[in-house]
Write a protein that binds this DNA or RNA. Structure first.
Lengths: 261, 261
DNA sequence: ATTTGTGAAGGGTTTCACAGCA
DNA sequence: TGCTGTGAAACCCTTCACAAAT
């Protein structure tokens, strides 16, 4: 019964050939943002130290990340800002334009439709869709909101690749299914639920309440530490803001039934 | 010159005593959400397999995560839904109410103020602040928007612990400084920039454009793989959606100057 | 002299497989 | 029998320290 552990490797070979670590991918947008800001200020060259500071990471991490893209720096000098912007943009696939549909034009949908950050960076909000007849026909961010009926038609005829789900939770899965059926292969989900999609479709979830809850955890932890008399210099850096202080863990022996009641 | 590598440990000792891994903390909100949904459907007990599915993770990961909080399950049975909700809530610090101020009442600020997910889960939006005189005085989500002048007074007198920055990028750092000076110890930053804060203050950044860019990367990668004739079953699961396909990495030998132009 | 790019080391996270318990 | 809780292994990511390059 104890077979010798299946050699479940297939990936690290690939990784050496081309794959960029997911952690690196998730930071490339930040580097891009920092570089763009530098470019606007007319900076031509930047060192890993400077760029790292601007992006809020350590310089070693930055260099390691960039090394996965190629050797785009010059030793003793640094990185050409414009060139690096081009390379990162290309790697992220921002040299082509991506078409986006936003479904659910409530408060959040409105905000997303008007959000400048999308339009400015390779993304075109191509359509707005809502289920509510009172919203359909409105003009938001220069687009006319259409009804749910038009969803499939809109996505396939415009060739939309990415769907943003900003509906209430209960509606999200059905919307997602229809988006995928119509040809969308990437979904950004703002609804507070898990979306199930077929292989080959990617979902990213952004949950605002989740972020606050994580903050609350660290707030509480900080307060508990202060009470306990410990007060070490706490990491303000997100990426290493772990296990900061040791609250005595009261292990309250409240019975389960009592706690549940 | 080769000193014997500084023993820069202090933490793993703590971690064994109480610290919950950051990766685990970041998933607790999802478990909580799934559990709440189950509770509303009247489910009393749930297995790690079922809960994991509902939360979109693997069951082994779920069990490992929960084991960091304590032994709150029953072997052969599963977890009591209500009891687990209580334990996770307590660990996240949601048994107390957190007061939040939102600064920047534009499209996004509006959406955040009206977002139900905050209010429903231990967070009270206690104040809304904006720099624009045309917005000040408006009523949003039952609160009157006040001016920037009132920021310090509002935060300290109401005892607000968390600040949400939904301003344009250039204003964000100054707002953040004032929030911190007034006593805020946690910041949720929606502005597309790095915020510098003193030790003991935590910042989390949410960037909508970043999420889309990460999606775009994987979209592009997917398309490239299809062209190359490879089409392995791709992981739709976010957490392991790495190094999916091997695009030949064209290594375009465009000169730097040319690319920059 | 300066800064990149990178092996190597170390720590954190995920996954496996099963012991332990109900 | 069924499911949790957990060592151990595998994997991923970060950090260090320095060779290589300009």
């Amino acid at each position: 019964m104890t077979r010798p552990r299946p050699a479940r490797l297939v990936r690290s070979e690939r990784a050496t050939r081309d794959g960029i670590p997911e952690a690196t991918v998730s930071r490339l947008p930040f580097y891009l943002q920092a570089l763009t800001a530098l470019a606007e200020r007319g900076v031509a060259t930047v060192s890993s130290e400077e760029l790292a500071t601007a992006a809020g990471v350590g310089s070693a991490k930055l260099r390691k990340d960039l090394s996965h893209l190629g050797s785009y720096g010059t030793r003793g000098v640094g990185y050409e800002v414009q060139y690096l912007i081009y390379q990162i943009s290309r790697e992220l696939g921002l040299t082509q334009d991506w078409k986006v549909v936003i479904v659910g034009i409530g408060n959040l949908g409105h905000a997303l439709a008007n959000y400048g950050g999308f339009t400015s960076r390779g993304f075109t909000v191509a359509a707005l869709v809502d289920a509510d007849a009172r919203v359909v026909g409105e003009t938001v961010a220069g687009l006319t909101v259409t009804g749910l009926d038009s969803l499939d038609q809109t996505v396939s005829s415009l060739g939309i690749q990415i769907g943003v789900v900003a509906t209430p939770g209960p509606a999200a899965q059905e919307i997602c299914d229809r988006l995928v059926a119509a040809g969308v292969t990437g979904v950004l989900n703002f609804a507070p639920c898990v979306l199930t999609v077929p292989d080959g479709v990617m979902v990213r979830r952004v949950d605002l309440a989740t972020e606050l809850q994580i903050l609350a955890f660290h707030e509480q932890r900080r307060a508990a530490g202060r009470l306990a008399g410990e007060m070490p210099a706490e990491p303000q850096d997100l990426s290493e803001a772990l296990g900061a202080i040791g609250e005595p863990r009261t292990t309250l022996t409240k019975s389960r039934a009592e706690a549940a009641g």
